[in-house]
Design a protein around this nucleic acid. Structure first.
Length: 845
RNA sequence: GCGGGCGUGAUGGAAUGGUAGACAUAUCGGACUUAAAAUCCGAAGGCCUUGUGCCGUGUGGGUUCGAGUCCCACCGCCCGCACCA
């Protein structure tokens, strides 16, 4: 008898699939296509369990769709540009290119044994000149259509290293290498005009029915449509009026100051004339550029001395303050502060001793605001004590609408719809990215590179011994001639944000070697992605940028109309977590240990007890990692695949435990043994055949439903139950053989290698990977009787078994005759009798 | 600070508003064995006064004949916040 030996059989079946070309995708108009895609990995150097989980889920979908007659596209590539390669070059030497391609080779080597149904012939890395050259072509097309432009934007500036820092390189407001306090500094940068699509990107969210509601909600809030009032405050001096935008114009009579951003033109204009103001602005510009850093920073204000007139009362003067929590990017970069109904404004006014004026109270609480602003929901009715648009008791929203009408009628303000979504800054002052294909010419200005000169390749001879962008200090790379006039010119040395790379790779997979960004015939056949799978951390940026790119690519003729929303269905999976094992060193500092070095709560080497910290995301620094390579070499890929799918619902985190992996391995061994016994048994029909076949059809129904709805853990629970039923069954050999072959098929998306073994053992035709998915026979699923629980006052007290379609009146009679009910009623009548057919009976007494 | 999500036995989790704890892990008991491993069979939310008992899905309220599920508030954890990928 053969052993269950994944080490031997897994490579065998992988070779068989390769030789049969099972997963090579070619256009075939005769079959429905299905495009399943997992978010491609960054080539960090080693695969981790999160990858295994992500790709196994995609693989289950892909294999299931093959079995149900689809022509499946399931590609894989590498999100290969980005900072880690440059950081590695700085830390350990070498070249980002060598580091990246080396990592790709290693990771591919580690992924192959998983037996994924990937069409590797379509593989590419975003750092391949062939890929980024086409990306440059896209950039030029976008430029021509007015979808790209240049403007100033702020970056994190490290004044010691004299370099731009990414947000993640800013730690507690300081540069990660120099430790210097980071400043915000303006640079001229390239932007995609995603804001032109704000409304469309928002409205189209409603069509994404197969996306998680939470992702759509997050994008809705991110795009942030708001209707408010835009109007101007006249200055008491001769200066230009200050235009503000507010979503709460109804609180205008509670205004106590006008606030402008430190980046507002007025602030900038005054900066040169006042050393005091310059010092304040320097202070206000300290810290990182993230919204979080700005909003949690201590509130700072500076009185400009400018005074403005209140639009409703020219005698009422308000001071103009510069405040560090006002963003230049949103609205007009200027607001009026209403401290009574905005906590930030209140904190600011208390700090600088500005007045606090209530404009409305709750209907039954007229306490003036002290330290907590009164901010009821806009749908709640409030009582106005300071009103001007004719309302006394109204909701906030009614008051806002009335105020906008009032201001428009009087002609001093306008209702305006604004979006929070900002244009997408794509410039990065870094080497390892896609060069922006433009040239700066003294005579012609900014000139696009000619398409025939693409790709603009990154130079190989660069060094990383200094901070900053090596392209900037390269002796010759910048030198070029102007594509327009031929005069000596300079290449743009900024490269593109790596989000650009990942915003169209899904389209490139449909024709990865095309000489244009896409091939319309291929794109038209394969697009859209039918099922996209990835982490929730990409809920906003990556997915929103991709939606923008798909629209822009359509405008430029690179994608069909139907691909404006490129991902038909989205699934966001959870992380893989593990317990953390910790001891303390002589200085009481934590020391972490790998799970493989710990046995029974003690260090295997020394016997020292470890502290066990509850599960957290696997991370190298906490050493709570399990290397998939080790798991596959000791248990095989099927065990790893089975376990990551079995223990948790896929959208939630899964905790990796050694015991769980061991149990998964044991279970697969058990299935293998059952198959061997069944294969060896002599046929002799028994009276138990039908019962087993009924279980089989129920399993087909439940597993199919589980796989289709991403209930992989539920599908696996059914497979366990079906395996138990099969093992205990007294059915004849032929029925058992049929049940076992079906079990192998139902398991094949999760454990493809073992399933091939069993399929072959039981004489299945061809590969199970290519066999048609089993169909549940409705007739075998019908149950004739049903057990109904009987509740008395909502608590389960008894149960009855009745015919499945027994009339409601009959069920009521039987229920009322039940001992427990008779006793509880004690001769009386029930107040109410609820019968939910097929579900439950509730007697209310 | 802002936006989004999650919270059920010792553990991972199951449950279209309708019998809470399916399935699995760990545990305990039994069979097989000289013994162990492997395998197979079985038990099991908590509590007590062992009953037709009480309690029980982060905490506190609410809606409902009925709430893990819906609503409100709070607590804890996770994701995102535009230059990490």
């Amino acid at each position: 008898m053969a052993r269950f030996d994944p080490g031997v059989t897994e490579p065998k079946w992988q070779t068989a699939w390769d030789e049969a070309g099972t997963f090579t995708a070619t256009r075939d108009e005769s079959r429905p296509k299905y495009y399943v895609l997992e978010m491609f990995p960054y080539p960090s150097g080693r695969i981790h369990m999160g990858h295994v989980r992500n790709y196994t889920m995609g693989d289950v979908v892909a294999r299931y769709k093959i079995a149900t007659g689809h022509n499946v596209l399931h590609p894989m590539g590498w999100d290969a540009f980005g900072m880690p390669a440059e950081n590695a070059a700085m830390a350990i030497g070498g070249h980002p290119k060598d580091w990246t391609y080396g990592n790709i080779a290693t990771m591919k080597e580690q992924m192959k044994p998983l037996g994924l149904s990937i069409d590797w012939s379509r593989e590419f890395a975003t750092c391949d000149p062939d890929y980024y050259g086409q990306q440059q072509a896209l950039f030029l097309d976008f430029l021509e259509k007015g979808l790209v432009y240049r403007k100033n934007a702020v970056v994190n500036w490290d004044p010691v290293d004299m370099t731009v820092l990414a947000n993640e390189q800013v730690e507690n407001g300081r540069g990660w290498r120099s430790g210097a306090l980071v400043e915000r500094r303006e640079l001229t940068q390239w932007f995609f005009k995603i804001s032109d699509f704000s409304e469309e990107l928002l409205d189209a969210l409603d069509t994404l029915e197969d996306w998680p509601a939470k992702v759509r909600l997050m994008q809705e809030n991110w795009i942030g449509r708001s209707r408010g009032l835009q109007f101007s405050f006249d200055r008491t001096d001769a200066g230009d009026p200050i235009t503000v935008y507010t979503t709460r114009p109804d609180t205008l009579l509670g205004a106590s100051f006008v606030g402008i951003s430190p980046d507002h033109p007025i602030a900038k204009a005054m900066e040169a004339d006042s050393t005091e103001l310059a010092a304040f602005l320097k202070e206000a510009r300290k810290g990182g550029t993230t919204e979080e850093a700005i909003e949690t920073a201590e509130k700072l204000g500076y009185d400009t001395g400018i005074r403005v007139r209140h639009p409703l009362n020219p005698d009422w003067e308000l001071p103009v303050w510069i405040a560090n929590f006002i963003l230049m990017d949103y609205g007009t970069g200027a607001i009026f502060g209403c401290p009574a109904h905005d906590q930030r404004d209140l904190d600011f006014c208390r700090k600088y001793d500005l007045p606090v004026i209530d404009t409305f109270f709750g209907l039954d609480d007229q306490t003036p605001v002290k330290t907590e602003a009164f901010v009821p929901p806009k749908t709640e009715k409030v009582k106005w004590i300071n009103h001007f648009a004719g309302l006394d008791v109204a909701t906030g929203q009614q008051a806002i609408d009335a105020t906008i009408d009032f201001a428009e009628k009087q002609g001093w303000g306008q209702g305006v719809t604004k979006f929070r979504l900002r244009d997408w800054g794509l410039s990065r002052q870094r080497y390892w990215g896609c060069p922006i294909p433009v040239v700066h010419c003294d005579a012609c200005g900014v000139v696009p590179e000619k398409k025939e000169n693409l790709p603009i390749r990154l130079p190989d001879d660069v060094s990383f011994d200094k901070p900053g962008n090596p392209l900037d200090r390269h002796p010759t790379w910048r030198d070029c001639s102007c594509p327009a006039c031929g005069a000596p010119a300079r290449r743009e040395t900024d490269t593109m944000d790596t989000f650009v790379d990942s915003s169209w790779y899904f389209a490139r997979f449909t024709a990865p070697r095309a000489e244009t960004p896409t091939d319309m015939a291929e794109a038209d056949y394969w697009m859209n992605v039918d099922q996209y799978i990835g982490g929730i951390e990409h809920a906003i940026l990556h997915l929103l940028y991709s939606r923008f790119f798909a629209r822009a690519m359509h405008i430029c003729g690179h994608l069909p109309e139907k691909s404006k929303e490129p991902f038909n269905a989205l699934f966001t999976q959870g992380m893989v977590t593990h317990e953390i094992y910790q001891t303390r060193d002589a200085n009481d500092r934590p020391v972490y240990h790998l799970p493989e070095d710990v046995e029974d709560g003690k260090l295997a080497a020394t016997g020292e007890a470890v502290e066990i910290i509850p599960s957290a995301k696997m991370s190298k620094s906490k050493k709570n990692v399990v290397d998939p390579v080790n798991i596959i070499s000791s248990y095989g890929a099927d065990t790893a695949r089975w376990f990551v799918l079995s223990d948790s619902p896929p959208e939630r985190d899964v905790e990796w435990t050694a015991a769980g992996a061991d149990a998964a391995f044991k279970h697969l061994g058990r299935v293998w043994r059952i198959a061997e016994e069944v294969a060896a048994a002599q046929d002799a029909p028994t009276g138990e055949d039908e019962a087993l076949l009924r279980e089989m059809h129920k399993a087909i129904r439940d597993v199919t439903l589980g796989v289709e709805s991403f209930g992989f853990n539920a599908a696996i629970a059914k497979l366990y139950a079906f395996t138990n039923a099969l093992a205990k069954s007294k059915a004849g050999a032929e029925a058992k053989r049929q049940a076992t072959k079906t079990l192998a098929q139902l398991m094949s998306p999760m454990t493809p290698h073992l399933s091939e073994d069993i399929w072959a053992l039981l004489g299945g035709e061809g590969l199970v990977a290519e066999a048609a998915w089993p169909q549940a026979d409705e007739a075998m699923l019908v149950e004739n009787t049903v057990t109904l629980p009987i509740q008395i006052n909502g608590k389960r007290r008894s149960e009855i078994t009745v015919a499945k379609d027994l009339a409601k009146e009959e069920v009521e009679k039987i229920a009322l005759a039940d001992d427990a009910v008779v006793k509880a009623l004690d001769g009386g009548q029930p107040k109410k009798l609820i019968v939910v057919p097929g579900r439950i009976v509730n007697v209310v007494i």
